[in-house]
């Protein structure tokens, strides 16, 4: 479903990604791990078209993403969350989630200014979609709350709901477990598994929380200094000598 080939990204003299190859099959949960600065978020940013690679290709269902503009990515069926939250504090939780449905709307400045009936119709549909997404992550009771002022763990779930509201086929999660308590991580693992099954999602997951990655992933890809050093089922990767040296070994 997602095929990354020969992807190289340079920031000035620094090569953040070096000839990266990565394939994620439909319906798979792919964990992307590696030490800080390994290039995981940069890879996400390439998929989101926020970072321009020097060379390579990223194909999603046969479509070359690098030929598309950033705002077209959501419409292709790719949603993402951010490592640090990217919510709008002045909007309510529901409105933040409705942002996910933005790419499905067709009403523009003129229709909005003229209070065209289409605007109200779209608004109703978006509200329903947002409420569905909030229910899936268990936050329905907070829909009217301003996004500002909620605990971090809940804000992360608001972001997850917004990404779900984009009705993606590929969902990219950048450190969904960071800043969560032990109990919350366990809940998150269960939630991700359930969502992936119910919504037939393909997941690409950047995460430092090893237990979570190993628990939910079908495939784990290890990046170190911008290169893929190992890829395979969690059990194999865990035993790979290079991975242990680069990552697990360093952490121990």
């Amino acid at each position: 479903m997602l095929e990354v080939a020969g992807l190289t990204v340079r920031f000035g003299g620094l090569t953040a990604l070096h000839d990266v190859e990565l394939t994620v099959e439909r319906g798979q949960v792919c964990g992307l791990i590696g030490p800080n600065g390994a290039g995981k978020t940069t890879l996400f940013n390439c998929v989101s078209r926020l970072v321009e690679p020097a060379q390579g290709s990223i194909r999603f269902d046969g479509v070359e993403l690098l030929d598309r503009r950033p705002h077209e990515i959501a419409g292709l069926g790719i949603a993402r969350t951010f490592q640090h939250l990217a919510l709008v504090p002045s909007l309510s939780v529901r409105e933040n989630v409705m942002l996910g449905a933005h790419h499905r709307g067709r009403s523009g400045f003129l229709a909005a200014a003229l209070h065209h009936p289409m605007v109200r119709r779209e608004e109703r549909a978006m509200t329903t979609d947002a409420e569905d997404a909030l229910e899936r992550v268990g936050l329905s009771h907070l829909a009217d709350h301003p996004a500002a002022g909620l605990p971090y763990g809940q804000l992360k779930r608001v972001e997850l709901a917004r990404a779900l509201c984009e009705t993606p086929r590929l969902l990219c999660l950048d450190e969904p477990a960071s800043g969560l308590s032990h109990g919350e991580v366990a809940e998150l693992a269960a939630l991700l598994k359930r969502l992936a099954a119910e919504l037939e999602l393909t997941l690409l997951l950047v995460e430092h929380h090893m237990a979570l990655v190993m628990q939910v992933s079908d495939q784990v890809v290890v990046l170190d200094f911008g290169r893929v050093i190992a890829a395979g089922p969690p059990r194999e990767v865990q035993q790979d000598a290079r991975v242990i040296e680069a990552y697990l070994g360093a952490a121990a």
Binding site: S48, R49, L50, P70, H71, E72, I73, A74, G75, A79, R80, F82, A86, L87, V88, P89, S90, L91, L99, G100, H102, H103, R162, E166
Partner: peptide, 15 residues
């Protein structure tokens, strides 16, 4: 308001 508060994120959901 998303363009104002979080332009990068705005791109990723289609703005």
């Amino acid at each position: 308001v998303t363009v104002r508060d979080n332009p990068i994120a705005a791109k990723t959901f289609g703005v």
